[in-house]
Every structure is written in structure tokens, then in C-alpha cells.
Simulated assay, not measured.
Amino acid sequence: MDKKLVIVYAVLISSFLIAYPFMKSSASYLSESKPQNNLVQTTNCKNLQSKVQTPQEIQKNKNKANIIFTMDDGWETQFTKGFKILKDNDVKGSIAVIPSKIGTEGYMSLSQLNTLYRSGWDLMNHTNTHRHLASLKKQEQKSELNDARKWLDQHCFTRASNIAVYPYGSFNQDTLKTLQEEHYRSARTIKDGIQTNNIKKYEVRTINLLPSTDISWVKDQIDLAIKTKQSIVFTNHRFEKKADKAQMNFDPEKFKTIVNYVVSKKDELNILTYSEWLDLKEIK
């Protein structure tokens, strides 16, 4: 081999041997400092873990009435007013989330949803863009539901992402088939009434709290649920004192009165999130 080439090779090898420890150290540093998506996701989800009742804890109260407070759409007043009222009474609720609305005017922020979830609240699936499901083709319905479920899961809100709430109460046979095929746990309608113990898992009834709702009547329904050991799933939208054109708001003071009445009867009933209620009903 040419003597000059031998010298060049010798210089290159020497340079590599000198630089290698620093290259290794640098590579190690970059590897350690580079975010790992799976690790970040796991860490974030751990930070969002909250105290929820175990099936064993719920089992003790199985033979009682059940009260579930749900709120639709993720309006900001549900956080600033509804959440505060329930939190002051050490009660958890369940919010039906529309992912495409989060962070827009009048709706909750992602940070507020994080606070709710850490506090033990359920974040349920209200579809991705809140369209009338019955007006859509089956594949479109599937996308609306599963896109919302995916968003909730990606943000670590996994506890109730497979519990659907129908926008406008709209659903049809294609919806029911889709929910069955995609293994959703339950779906809530806007059909009024106490939910009997004979539950149709995708047609759960509710009592809608509207400006015209009489508080004395609500108290009577709570007493009836206690007597018959049945369930009431309450539904709210915006919390505002003055009724709007859509009649979808509720006076927060009236809501406080209802919550106080429920809490006063806590020895005779369970106050649960929607997923806790399902856990109770699925216990054999």
C-alpha cells in the first residue's frame, strides 16, 4: 500500500478513537433528552388518574336508588358554576364532550377538562362535531362516534370514552348497530323519565333540567326513586339564570337546591358518575 495512504488511514483511525467517547456521550445525551411519545403519554395519563369508587365499594350500596348528574356539550358554565356547586358538596358529575368545540368561545378549555377528570368526573362521548346521527349514513355515524372516542383516549380521558350521549337525542337502528359493533358500554338519550332497573343499554332515559322544570316535582321524583330503588340520570346544558330562546339553560341556584336535596338523602341513595353506575349495574 502507498505510504501516503497508510499515513492518511492512521490519522483517520486516531481521530476516530479520540472522538468516539465524546460521540458516544453526545448520542447518549440526545437519546435521554429526546421526548419519547409513549413515555410522555403514559406520564400524562398517570397525572390524570383520580380517585374513583371500586366495584367493591359500590357493591355495599347496591340496593339503593342512584343519582347521576350529567351535563351535555362541555359548556364553560358547567365548569365555572356546575362543577363548583357539585364540588362544594363533594359530588362528582359526568360531562358529554364535543372534541371539536373544546377551546372555542363559550366552551371549556382542555385544561378545565383535565381538572374535571382528575377530580373523578367522567368525560363521555358526545360525538366529534355534534351532528344529528339519524340524518347520517352508518359509516358517518361510526366516524362521529369513533373520532370523538379516539380524541378522548389520546388525551387520557379513557374512563368513559366508550359511553355515548346522542346529540339532540337523535339516533336510529344504524346507531344502535354501530354502538354494538364498536363495543360501546352505554348511550344516553334525552327521553324523559326515571330509569328503571330494566335498562336498555343504548336507550338510557334522563330527567332534563330546563327553565320550566318545577323543583318540587324534581324532589318528588327523587323520593320516588328512593322508594322504588331506581335511578335518575339528570341532564343539564348551560347554567344561566335567565332562560334563553333554546330553553336549554338552568338557573344555578335551582341546581344548587336540587343538589342539596340529593345530598340530604345520601344515606338512602348512591350519587355516582355514569361509569360508576354502569359498574354497579354490571355487578352480578
Rank of each mutant, 00 (worst) to 15 (best):
E105F: 15
N146Q: 13
W75E: 00
Y107Q: 00
G120P: 13
Y107T: 02
K62C: 02
A148Y: 02
N37L: 10
I98M: 01
I163N: 09
G106S: 09
G120Y: 08
Q53G: 09
T42A: 15
Y166F: 15
N44Q: 12
S33R: 08
L39D: 02
I68E: 00
H132F: 07
Q56P: 07
H126N: 13
Q53K: 10
I85N: 06
T104A: 04
N162M: 09
Q154A: 13
N44Y: 10
T43S: 09
K24P: 10
S33M: 11
R118E: 03
A134C: 00
S100D: 01
K64W: 00
I98Y: 01
N37R: 11
N125L: 06
C156N: 02
T158S: 14
S135C: 09
A96W: 13
D88Y: 08
S143D: 13
T80W: 03
N37H: 05
F69E: 00
E76F: 07
S33F: 14
A148W: 04
H132Q: 12
Q36T: 10
P99K: 12
T70K: 04
T104F: 11
A27G: 15
N66F: 02
S161H: 15
T54K: 09
S143L: 06
V52E: 08
M71E: 00
S135Q: 02
V165W: 05
N63V: 04
F83M: 04
T43N: 04
F83N: 04
K62H: 12
K150N: 12
D73M: 07
S28I: 13
S143C: 05
W75T: 06
Q36I: 14
T104M: 12
K101G: 01
Q141N: 14
D147A: 15
K34L: 08
L30P: 12
L86Q: 05
L113E: 05
L86A: 05
Y107N: 02
K81G: 00
G106W: 10
